[in-house]
Each structure stands twice: as C-alpha cells, then as structure tokens.
Design a protein around this nucleic acid. Structure first.
Lengths: 208, 208
DNA sequence: AAATATACAAAACATTTGTTCACAAGTCAA
DNA sequence: TTGACTTGTGAACAAATGTTTTGTATATTT
C-alpha cells in the first residue's frame, strides 16, 4: 500500500492541522476544497478517504467537521529544549499527584524551568505569598521532593489542602511561613499525619 | 457587569474546553445542552450568549461549531505550539529591538505567553515594580506596540534607558508610574524626543 | 483496443446544526 | 401588583455540511 502522500493530500492534511491548531476546530469539506483547489465536495471526500486509508485521519460519518487527527499526524513540538508540564487541579491527600484525571491542563515550558521530567505546575490561590512576588493566579513550577532546605519555597500538603510557603525547620517542628504580614505562620510537628512536603518551587509564570 | 459564572455557564465552558482539547473540535449546541441539562437549543444559546458577554467565548454566526475560546479561557495544552522569544540585552535608543546582535539569548515558551511572533522578552532590573509582583531578575514578555491603554504595564524607552512601568496618560502628558512607594512617577510630555512606548507587558517568568 | 482504476466536477439529496418565534415560570425593582 | 428581565421549553425554519449519484478525463492494465 503506497503510503506516500500526493501533493493535494499533503496540503489538505497541513490545512486541517493548522485549522485545528489555530481555530480549535476542523475545517468543512468545502473549506478544504477551496484551500487545495478542489471545487467538488466529492473530490475532497476522495482526498480525505485517502488520508484515512493511509492512517493520517479518522472521520465520523454524518458529523459536521467530523475529522480527527491520528497520533501520527498530530504535529509534534519539534523543540527539544522544552518540556510539557501538567498543571494540577485540586491536590487532594492520598491521590498521587500524577493522576491524569486531576489535570487542569498542560503547559509547555523551557527545560530550564522544568529541570526534571516529573516537574509539576500549580495555579496559586490566595495572597499568602504576595510579598515574595507570588500572586493569585500565577502558575508555579515545582520539583517533587519530600524534604527541603531552610528558606526554600515549598508546596506542602496539610490535610486536604495544598499550600505554598517558605520552609523553615525549627528543632523538631516545621514552620511554614507566608510572605504576607496579614497571615500567620503555620507550625507543624514533623510527623503529623496528613502533612507532607510535595516539592520545591523552582519557577513561576504569570499572564497579564 | 457581573463576571461571575453561573453553574451552568461554568459547566458549559468546561465542556467546551475539554471537547476542543480532547477531540479537536467544539461541541454543537445540542451536545452542550445534553451535557449541562438544557433540553432546548435556545436555552443553550442563552448560556453561550452569557459566556460571550462575559468574555469567555467568541461565536461565528451561522457556522457549525462556530465557538472559539478567548485568550482568558484557553487552557494551555499540548497542542498549542511553542515560540522562541529573544531575550533582549540592553535596549538602546534607535536600534531596532529585533536586531539579532542585541540578544542575550532565547527562551522557548508556550504560545499563550507569546501571542504574536514579534513578542520580545526582557530581564527586569531594579525594584521599581515590586509591588506589582515584578522583581529584579524576572523575565517579562512584551508585545510590541506604540500606544497603550491606561493601567497597562508597558516597556518604555526614555532616552537611552528602557523601563517597565504602569502607563497612565493624563491630558497631554504621560505618567509612568512605578509600583514601589519609594520611587517617584516619571512624567513625560508626549512628543518628547527619545521617548517611546516599546510594548505592552503580557507575561512574566521567574526562576527561583 | 477494451477494461479498470483514479481523480475529480456538478448537482441533488439527507442530515446536522444554528436561528427564530411563541410561550411560560420565576425574579426583581418600582 | 405591574412590568421588565432572566432563563428557559418546544417547534418550525434556514443555513451549513456531509453523502450519494451521474458523468468525464486520464492513466494503467490486460
């Protein structure tokens, strides 16, 4: 079976890819036709059939814009120096932070922001770290680790709540210090059930 | 204008987001309706109208699946491409900001942080915007533009110096306001030679 | 040459999908 | 209360979109 694409097939595939990527929806047969220079919807159909046969597309019959890209034709991010980081939704105690149902989305960032491939991201809620320049709505990146050095900014789990604070061990206790004079530090006996360091904050992104 | 979303609006928006992200196409009115429990397409229409009014969606009339997410409601995801943004070193008056010799390096970021392909980046020096959560060493992303709306954070050129400030036009003058009570606003007569708005700040990254 | 397959065009048709209209129940302010 | 406004239901309608049919030109095979 010839897996080579003709020029029209190639242009149709490219057009479909860029429409999905740019507009968030696949084109209609007529849109594809006018793009690749085929005036009949039946001609387009023919081109799409070929792309389906060759494994680049899937179609849903009788469905408007019922075109999906298969894995092999989803355009890969060619850049090697980036990493896709999951943005975790709610973090709940006991659930592994990598559970995919729990993701709010993914964001692609430079590897310098995501040093290890288990880096995760989190949207900041609340104002407790505002004097450290971390604001509500910011996305922070964290590298998973169970302990931290004094002065690190960490993501910690206290019961059902995830929180971002400065980490300051004092004797047998751990001080979780906010960067907001209106908030009080949290003091935790180390070994308290339900308390856990999830990771160290290594980066931050914000959109204006 | 009430920007709060009702429960149905929220569920509709979430559904639209996940359909676009998972299937690569927006849902139809009837699909949305059956998801959020509204049996009439006109009821769905009403919900979508609200989401458009509140700035979460755009619609194309008479177009199947003619729903697009606005920037604020696009969830960054793996399908979005990345863009390489130049980090400008010194910005000097008169030299085009795109001059390649002038680059400190390049950073790859999600397109949602670099909306246009002429987005540039800049490393922040000084503490003048610290109360806006912008700190020394942060990298800011800016979209080139010559004017701005009041309240925007802009990159402006004053003589030989580039600066990041709040933009506030007052009468024929322009107030460049720092976010630091220890600093004074800069007042510039519009039309002053050597003064120029270079762009509007759209994003920020920080490494810890 | 005749038969067959490919790659369309054009038009008619079927289905999906968005829009509009008429109506109703609930809310809220005057 | 009255009257607007919101948030729908339900049905009819209109436009968009996919499918099918018929036909044509070209290349390939037999």
């Amino acid at each position: 079976m010839g897996m080579q694409l003709t020029e029209k097939q190639q242009r149709a595939l490219q057009f479909i890819q860029s429409e999905i990527s740019d507009r968030g929806r696949p084109p209609t047969l007529r849109e594809i036709g006018s793009q690749i220079g085929v005036s009949s919807t039946n001609g387009v159909r023919y081109v799409l059939d070929a792309l389906v046969r060759k494994g680049y597309l899937e179609r849903s019959p009788m469905l408007s814009r019922g075109i999906e890209l298969t894995d092999r034709s989803v355009r890969p991010n060619s850049k090697s120096d980036v990493r896709e980081v999951p943005i975790l939704g709610r973090i709940a105690a006991g659930i592994p932070i990598t559970a995919t149902e729990n993701h709010e989305g993914r964001i692609t960032v430079d590897k310098s922001f995501a040093p290890t491939d288990d880096t995760f991201a989190l949207r900041v809620r609340g104002e407790s770290m505002i004097e450290a320049g971390i604001r509500e709505g910011d996305v922070i990146f964290a590298r998973p680790q169970r302990t931290a050095d004094s002065g690190d900014i960490v993501v910690a789990m206290i019961g059902e709540e995830a929180t971002v604070k400065f980490y300051k061990p004092i004797g047998g206790r751990i001080l979780l210090e906010p960067a907001n004079s209106r908030f009080k530090p949290i003091i935790v006996e180390s070994g308290t059930p339900g308390f856990q360091i999830l990771g160290k904050v290594v980066g931050l992104m914000r959109k204006f």
